[in-house]
């Protein structure tokens, strides 16, 4: 009973923290909006230049998109070449902002100054962690791909595609489970880095593996995901029922995802600190 209570109160407090950290999520939302604008604006320019003085059709169709691209191929290739740069910079911002959130939830101080100082303090360590995470994901993806194509699959040699499909389904489930644990491990390690402030974190990353294999941590992590999914579903449904401007609904859904991010790190921070207290006692 008390364990349940602890789980529920951890979650409740985390979401309260998330909602209360309005300076952080406002900034995150704003930056997300600006970066999306950086990508969508040139595309809008193509539409503008193609449809300047044109009567354009009411529905977006393959015909319309194709004619649009034909109209301004130069700008299309420009967008394709700048897109990786924008995505790269956004990735760096995400590393910075995650470091800021971790700092804020660890000190339970949701002022912008704490967020920014945390971003600066942990940026390079989190960047390293991100690179490790991407390498790990790539490696796991490679292994799963090898398993998927194991046995030199030649469509002329197989009896039916059934086994390939079921293999793909099982591997997708495997990937989802592995990714979930990897993500939990990654988030937990971030909190640990904030708590112990180590220069290198090899020992902590090994320790995190055993620490996350804890029913309470897993339950809290999963419930937070469920809450986020429920919120997104709710907002989507509201958006479909009530004729609200689509862009507003998008902002609310993005906001729900940002709240989840803060709430999740906040929950893990509380659990991580509790572990710390338990170790001390």
């Amino acid at each position: 009973m008390s364990k349940q209570k602890t789980i529920l109160s951890t979650i409740a407090l985390s979401w309260k923290n998330a909602a209360g950290s309005w300076q952080i999520w406002s900034l995150l939302l704003l930056v997300n909006f600006i970066f999306a604008k950086l990508i969508s604006a040139p595309i809008a320019n193509i539409i503008d230049s193609a449809s300047l003085n044109r009567v354009i059709p009411a529905n977006v169709s393959l015909t319309y998109i194709y004619d649009l691209i034909q109209n301004d191929q130069h700008l299309v290739s420009q967008i394709m070449s700048t897109l990786p740069i924008i995505l790269g910079v956004y990735l760096l911002w995400t590393v910075f902002s995650t470091a800021g959130i971790v700092n804020s939830v660890f000190y339970k101080d949701f002022k912008l100054s704490t967020f920014l100082s945390g971003g600066l303090k942990f940026f390079f360590r989190f960047l390293r962690l991100t690179i490790y995470m991407l390498i790990l994901l790539g490696f796991i993806g490679f292994i799963l791909y090898k398993v998927l194509t194991f046995g030199e699959i030649n469509i002329f040699q197989i009896d039916s595609e059934d086994f390939l499909i079921s293999r793909a389904v099982w591997l997708s489930i495997c990937f989802a489970v592995i990714y979930t644990f990897l993500k939990l491990w990654n988030d937990w390690l971030k909190i640990t880095i904030a708590r112990l402030n180590p220069k290198f974190f090899f020992r902590q990353s090994i320790g995190a593996i055993s620490q996350i294999l804890n029913i309470k941590t897993i339950v809290v992590f999963l419930i937070n995901i469920l809450i986020a999914l429920a919120m997104i579903l709710l907002f989507r449904t509201i958006g479909q029922i009530i004729p609200i401007v689509a862009i507003l609904i998008t902002q609310v859904i993005i906001l729900a995802r940002l709240w989840y991010k803060i709430a999740n790190l906040s929950s893990l921070s509380m659990l991580n600190s509790a572990l710390d207290r338990a170790e001390e006692s």
Partner: peptide, 25 residues
């Protein structure tokens, strides 16, 4: 008017995509 609708649509799609990307971190 149509342009605005389309720009908003694109904006929403890219915001979602970027936020999805940040899940990896």
């Amino acid at each position: 008017k149509t342009n605005n609708t389309m720009t908003s649509w694109l904006q929403g799609r890219f915001q979602n995509a970027l936020e999805f990307l940040s899940l990896l971190i």
